[in-house]
Amino acid sequence: MLSYEFMRLALAAAVLVGLTAPTVGVHLVQRRLSLIGDGLGHVALLGVAVGLATRSAPVLTALLATVAGAVVVEVLRARRSTGTDVALAIMFYGGLAGGVVVVTRAPAGTPITLDGYLFGALTTTTRGDLVVFAGMAAVVLGVTLGLGRSLFTVALDEEHALASGLPVLRLNLLLAVVTAVTVTLSMRVLGLLLISGLMVLPAGCAQLVARSFRSSLAIAALIGVTVSVSGTAVSFYADTPSGGTIVLMAVAAYAVLSMASLARRGSPRHGPDAVPTPVQPVSRPGEVPSPR
């Protein structure tokens, strides 16, 4: 697999996306905005279509469309108006519909079809793409990790953050923009319809097992990289689409972890500060307790 140049590039892109998307996702899940990435993916499609139709770089036009969409989302949220929900729906579906219509104006012989953006075309990653991806990933990680504490504080209690003099609106806008950048970065790897999966599912996994916000970030990033790299490898050998395979791996990780945490919850509880002691299962008559 590694002897192919396109697979090496694909795996590198998978690592970048697997690392960055979940760190954004943890912040979004904390704010209970887990589906916002999906909506921004719809808006990104309009950007892609405009890029294809005008023969300009679809990644750039998608980035512009998504950032604009993200800023609108945040401004609507900050105004707390009652029509926010419907306004978001109009924007998201307007973007999707606009994308579908505009892309028909793309000149014949366009190298990558809309399908590639909807469901991911990881193996078409070029060296040039990878450099752009790396830059975007650095920006995203700089915000989600570097400013993690501020973002966390705002999400925890927006009013308290305001009363502490934190620039709440600016921080929220920054997270929105970073979400938009992540959507654009991930669209070639996962596809616009599946992006939210890699943002939110690892964060959901972390929710099950993490014992702090900090460890949630670390666990989500670890799971993100694991599923995106293994998903890419599986898609190569099983000849399946990369985006879908990666998200299915994340779903599987969630299923395994939720069963593990259910099993743990079933056992007698210990305070987290108590010294973990081995729990001896009550043995039925005639049964030898298994040695630990």
């Binding site: 943890v26 899940v29 904390q30 704010r31 209970r32 887990s34 504490r149 501020s150 966390f152 504080t153 999400a155 925890l156 209690d157 009013e159 308290h160 009363a163 502490s164 003099g165 934190l166 964060a203 972390a206 929710q207 993490a210 014992r211 702090s212 916000f213 900090r214 949630s216």
Partner: peptide, 29 residues
Amino acid sequence: RVGYVPQRHTVAGGVPVTVRELVSSGRLS
């Protein structure tokens, strides 16, 4: 220089948060 204890009874979010993390957020200002 100004501290505030709001009239909320619960603190909730979508991600696990430790007491130390919550209290540390008050130091951010």
